[in-house]
Nucleic acid binder design. Structure first.
Lengths: 234, 234
DNA sequence: CCGTGGTATTATGTATACAATCATGATATT
DNA sequence: AATATCATGATTGTATACATAATACCACGG
């Protein structure tokens, strides 16, 4: 008898939530797009109720903006907004590696090394999607090693807004050599349980990310301005 | 003509959310209490729909726990749980004062001093509720000075779980002299824009809070154990 | 041609109805 | 007496219906 029976029940709101989130992060729903309940309901084959609940969840995560009596729309990514998120993430990423230095098990260190190697292999493929995925995995190992559930879920939700820029960030990083070097430095520091070096490395790591993402946002905005001035293709 | 007309519309879900949150934080709904939709709806005079949406929001903030097909209950506060939150808050509080050192305006400094003085006056009243309120105000000034909206909302939601212990924490702090001293130290550091000292002071400030809250949780748990062994009054 | 007002449409806010599942308890059987 | 099974009630999950506010469009007047 399959014992997984009660656990695998997924309320519609959750699958709707996942679907909407995916659509936003991949850019299928661009920033500013209105999210209309009946429309989404028809598209996904469910009623308005689960849609509403999913939208409430996305709102709490900052992926959608709600205006009472007007509805929900995909949140705009502004430079200020992203800068705020990155500022917080910098502090939390540093906390992650510091805690990891204290608490990581030998098994965790082995996982970390595996993730590092997997990332370096991914870099060789030169496929942004593969690299991005390996990068996420690498960070997840560190975050899990902290054993702090609240920190884990926070990191998760703070990463979301940036996924919209992750591919460009990966592509942008000239040569990826820096990324590999930074990862190696972090792994070494954690293995030696040297929190100070680890914190420094993690800080630089996200500072680089920040520069790349901010540049990307400015390019996007410039493009939008051009479109507004000279008419956008449609 | 009163211009505040469109803004003051509050959907029921929000007022329900506020009401439930208040009930949880003040202990009216103790940890473990089941939150049943029809029951709450009757009590508050609304239908299930706004109740459900409010509960979803509370879940995202970690104040209630949901089990599919079984319903929602007020989240248990475990020592691990609170420890995780405090660990994160420590990092974010330090980030707050560091950013405040960089960015606070002269007006902000003046507000900060006012809040400090108000807190010291509140201490003299010896009324825990007044002191707790002044303490919150003091921290809010610092948090606002960072100008980081994401940080502001995160600090807000991470403070929530601790409000259930705030009064005891205030009462517990022997003499409150420490609190006054710590606040003064933080204000001085921010005024001189000395991020290092400010960070150190903020760290100690929350470490003290941590000790007090953990002690409180252990006392609560002990009491519960006694009740379970010898029968609880009802 | 522009502005104002009114109406119609659309989308959200809220309530209620229906379906599915879980818990509880009673009854019957071993 | 203990356990198993079925029935009943209660509670959540989902869908739909109704009310209300916002928007868009058109007509009318200046």
């Amino acid at each position: 008898m399959p014992k997984a029976k009660e656990e695998d029940f997924l309320p519609l709101r959750d699958s709707v939530y996942n679907k909407l989130r995916q659509s936003i992060l991949t850019g299928e729903f661009p920033a500013g797009e209105r999210l209309m309940e009946v429309h989404l309901g028809d598209k996904l084959g469910v009623s308005r109720t689960p849609i509403r609940e999913a939208i409430r969840m996305l709102e709490l995560e900052g992926l959608v903006t709600m205006i009472p009596r007007k509805g929900a729309m995909v949140a705009q990514i502004t430079e200020k907004n992203m800068s705020d998120v990155l500022e917080v993430r910098r502090a939390l990423d540093i906390l992650c590696v510091q805690l990891a230095c204290e608490r990581i098990t030998s098994e965790g260190i082995s996982d970390l090394k595996k993730a590092r190697d997997a990332f370096e292999k991914a870099v060789e493929t030169n496929d942004s999607r593969v690299i991005a995925q390996a990068d996420v995995e690498f960070h997840n190992v560190i975050i899990s090693a902290t054993g702090n559930d609240r920190l884990i879920s926070l990191e998760d939700s703070l990463s979301l807004p940036m996924y919209r820029y992750r591919y460009e960030y990966i592509k942008d990083s000239s040569g990826h050599d820096n990324l590999v070097k930074e990862h190696r430095r972090i792994v070494n520091a954690i293995e030696k349980r040297n929190a100070e070096i680890a914190a420094e490395a993690a800080g630089e790591h996200i500072d680089n990310q920040r520069r790349s993402i901010i540049r990307q946002i400015r390019m996007d905005r410039e493009e939008e301005t051009m479109n507004a001035l000279y008419g956008k293709r449609k």
